[in-house]
Design a binder for these strands. Structure first.
Ligand SMILES: [Mn+2]
Ligand SMILES: [Mn+2]
Ligand SMILES: [Zn+2]
Ligand SMILES: [Zn+2]
Lengths: 162, 162
DNA sequence: CTGAGAATGAGAATCAATTTCAAAATGGCC
DNA sequence: GGCCATTTTGAAATTGATTCTCATTCTCAG
């Protein structure tokens, strides 16, 4: 019988997320498992936009027996519970980011180095709403992604050109 | 020897597109083929956002021997030539729309009936640019998609609820 | 008409994600 | 603690869109 010990990494925030998940899980007849604990722990220990592969790698460092299917399944539960949001950026796999206590935001994505910058722009959101209304549309969610070169890669490219 | 006759459907616009494609093709040592003619003809005969599957079906009505790979390849050429743009809406396959003489625009997508409404909003575009600049970003392209219920599906849903 | 090169269609391969299934784990109850 | 219905798991199979491979056919400049 392996002891179920985890140095629950991280802040009060990830502790709060774990609690929310626990009640989500029990409230619908799901079960708490060692694997889910590890995956969730790994997820909240990071910041940023993580792919399932990246999460699997980290999870395996703690428990090499964890399978990819379980990571897919667990992240879906986190998303359903509102604790993670799934992002589908251009061309890649699904990435997840922590969603607890976070505002809605959109992204700038560098097509050269892959870095992702987040932004919120209330005015844009309002205008989107106006556009939708003009067409009798009721918006449930949207996607705004700006692709290009980040400051750093812009400089690099300029010097390459010389 | 099958005669290479095609009732080149459609407007001066699609005729212009076919011409542009012809010069694109010859200018880089590609070759004109019966299959490409059919696919391009089918594409420009429609309006809207067509999936490769839809294009393949229509193309097969004219020439049942046309294969999916050829449709994929041809649409990629059209996109490279700037005559079609590829769109990757939520969850589905790639869709193509005619791009000749069209402004950049974004989309409202009904998650219930799949209908797509196009819009242009100069103010939103400007704000995007501003946001990017604020972060030292140089934007090459972007994606703005508003998902929700169109006017029609909104009404239907309201009556379902009674 | 010829030949070099390009294009084709069928099927195999890829890749992320989902599903299947038999075996293992969980947790409410006694 | 044991019981056991239910859930979960990992591995492997499957899916679905797209791309690739390859042997064969087609195109077009000379
Ligand atoms: Mn984000
Ligand atoms: Mn459009
Ligand atoms: Zn960059
Ligand atoms: Zn609709």
């Amino acid at each position: 019988m392996t002891p179920r010990t985890l140095e629950k990494t991280g802040s009060k925030k990830s502790a709060a997320a774990r609690e929310r998940l626990a009640s989500w899980i029990s409230s619908r007849g799901l079960k708490a498992t060692r694997q889910r604990d590890v995956i969730v722990d790994v997820f909240f220990a990071q910041t940023g936009h993580l792919s399932v592969d990246e999460l699997l790698e980290k999870a395996k460092q703690r428990d090499p027996t964890i399978g990819a299917a379980t990571v897919y399944r667990t992240m879906k539960i986190l998303a359903d519970a509102g604790l993670a949001s799934a992002r589908h950026f251009e061309g890649g796999q699904t990435r997840y980011e922590a969603a607890l206590d976070r505002h809605h935001h959109d992204h700038l994505i560098c097509t050269s180095c892959g870095s992702i910058i987040e932004f919120e722009n209330e005015r844009i959101e309002e205008l989107q709403e106006t556009v939708a209304e003009d067409h009798g549309f009721h918006v449930t969610h949207h996607k705004l992604e700006l692709y290009g070169l980040c400051r750093h890669c812009r400089v690099e490219q300029a010097s390459d050109r010389r």
